[in-house]
Design a protein around this nucleic acid. Structure first.
Length: 481
RNA sequence: CGGGGCGUAGCGCAGACCGGUAGCGCACCUGAAUGGGGUUCAGGAGGUCGCUGGUUCAAAUCCAGUCGCCCCGACCA
């Protein structure tokens, strides 16, 4: 008989999400600091795994890590017209320090294009200085009206890549390269199937010429922007005077890009894979990949045989799947079912049970978190089989999420159909669209859905469902977080 | 910032209309039985009732002010 500590998704999706975060011990609202979050050990462990994977890939594509100040002179934010408009309403300012009013206030960085632009202008003189390929892992602050754990906290952690290039083509290549890096890591590591695409005019980053995105579908069929890569053109170069003398002697403005993913990805993981029992983590980002539980009512048997055996198995398995990835659960004061549930709720991908039955048969019982399937494997094969099953879990989670998205994506060709499908089924609406920013706003007004992106891999064109214009690209619409 | 709601034990709530010095469920601690997907019983610990002021012999309760949080919108990684 389950206790109702986790609200079923069908009852209240928002509450379900909060319950998962709490019961899996990922994080809690900071409360004393509005909109901020305390990331707890398990949540941080997930972030560390994602960070490690991504950091390697950022470096593998030629970028180096750097660190810029948390505070930015307020005047910097004001330099790029659209950037000001986009970010001014949500920045926090520091006006006093050291007991005195500052002559110029600082803002706490909402993103670092401006201060990095300032330094890039000092570092770049020649085409030989380009490209400049830097990334920083840091925290930023945006005073959003409506915070939501992981998805939109006032302070959040992310990486922001900032690059400068000699030509438009090179900068565009970089923008797409990093979008692809994001797509790959989301797919391969987080098991998140995403739609890479270009943002519409109305959804662009303030100050960018083009914004590219990885859009994911959550299990309530709403969309989540999981990561973005911006082609900034020469906008910031002009605002911050980032110029170089080219091969031909001409002085030119550089072309810049920026790209980032944040702790929001943890929210994406939760809302993509988890169920009413609790969190489900893809093995590749699970700090604990296997919970190993010696089970017996006979305390002597436990200490003489089961626990030593368990230690031995743990070592053998960790030799194959990685250090400190197996948690040996020795909480014998709890009933087995309570111990099971603990790991289940926390999303541990695989549970192993070692009891008298297993001892007698020289087997180990594995239980999958994603399917509940029980698999008895010969003891000596355990390490290999654990690895194998973990790979299957990883694959299954991706496949499941992809199927969900595909079966909840609907094509429409008129506004009436758009509304009807969105109301009755929800999900992603796929339609040819060639409207303006104003049209986007009107559609949002009428339906609550926004343009998520123009998928990159879809080259088909057709008649716009809204304006009737010919030769328009396909867009994905959805209600979004 | 507009509309609604709420602050009482770690969490979720009752008590308030009709002032008399705080209670329930879960979680937690102890013990017993139980034990392979959320067990049962017994005992126990835990609260300046958001804050400030007022009325009163007496305030969680009445009055005034204030702070904060949540939900729905607008805004967003």
């Amino acid at each position: 008989m389950p206790k109702d500590v986790i609200t079923p998704r069908a009852t209240d999706y928002n509450q379900w999400y909060l319950d998962i975060v709490r019961e899996a011990d990922l994080a809690e609202p900071a409360e004393v600091v509005r909109g901020c979050i305390v990331v707890k050990a398990t949540g941080w462990g997930i972030w560390e795994m994602m960070q490690r994977e991504l950091d390697q890939r950022i470096k593998a594509t030629g970028h180096a890590n750097v660190q810029f100040p948390l505070l930015i002179p307020k005047s910097f934010i004001m330099k790029e017209a659209e950037h000001v408009e986009g970010f001014a309403p949500e920045v926090a300012e520091v006006t006093r320090a050291g007991g005195e009013d500052l002559t110029e206030p600082y803002v706490i960085r909402p993103t670092s294009e401006t201060i990095i632009g300032h330094f890039y202008s000092r570092w770049i003189r020649s085409y030989r200085d380009l490209p400049l390929l830097y990334n920083q892992w840091c925290n930023v602050m945006r005073w959003e009206k409506r915070p939501r754990l992981f998805l939109r906290t006032s302070e959040f952690l992310w990486q922001e890549g900032h690059t400068a290039h000699a030509t438009r083509e090179e900068a565009m290549e970089e923008t797409i390269r990093m979008l692809n890096v994001y797509e790959r890591i989301m797919k391969d590591v987080l098991a998140l199937p995403v739609v890479p695409g270009e943002k519409s005019e109305g959804e662009r980053f303030p100050g960018a010429d083009n914004t590219f995105t990885c859009e994911a579908m959550m299990s309530d069929k709403k969309a989540l922007q999981a990561g973005t890569s911006h082609f900034l053109g020469q906008n910031f170069a002009k605002a911050f005077d980032i110029k170089f003398q080219d091969r031909d002697g001409e002085v030119r403005y550089a072309w810049t890009t920026s790209w980032g993913v944040s702790t929001r990805l943890i929210g994406a993981l939760i809302m993509t894979h988890s169920d009413d029992d609790g969190l489900i983590l893809p093995p590749k980002v699970a700090p604990v990949k296997l919970a190993l539980l010696p089970i017996s009512t006979d305390q002597d048997l436990i200490s003489s045989t089961l626990e030593p055996k368990a230690e031995e198995i743990k070592a053998a398995i960790e030799a194959v799947i990685g250090r400190r990835t197996v948690e040996l659960d020795t909480r014998y004061h709890l009933r087995p079912s309570d111990r099971f549930f603990h790991h289940l709720q926390r999303g541990v991908p695989l549970r192993a049970e070692l009891g008298e039955k297993e001892l007698a048969n020289q087997t180990l019982r594995l239980v999958r978190r994603d399917t509940g399937e029980r698999i008895d494997v010969p003891m000596e094969e355990a390490p290999r089989r654990v690895l194998e099953v973990l790979e299957q879990v990883q694959e299954n989670l991706y496949r499941r999420a992809l199927d969900f998205r595909l079966s909840n994506t609907f094509e429409v060709s008129s506004m009436d159909e758009f509304k009807e499908v969105l109301d009755s089924k929800g999900g992603f609406i796929s339609a040819f669209f060639g409207g303006t920013k104003e049209d986007e706003r009107a559609i949002k007004e009428a339906t609550g859905a926004t343009v998520r992106c123009f998928p990159l891999e879809d080259h088909s064109t057709g008649t716009c469902f809204y304006t009737g214009r010919q030769g328009c690209k396909r867009a994905i619409f959805a209600k979004a977080y």
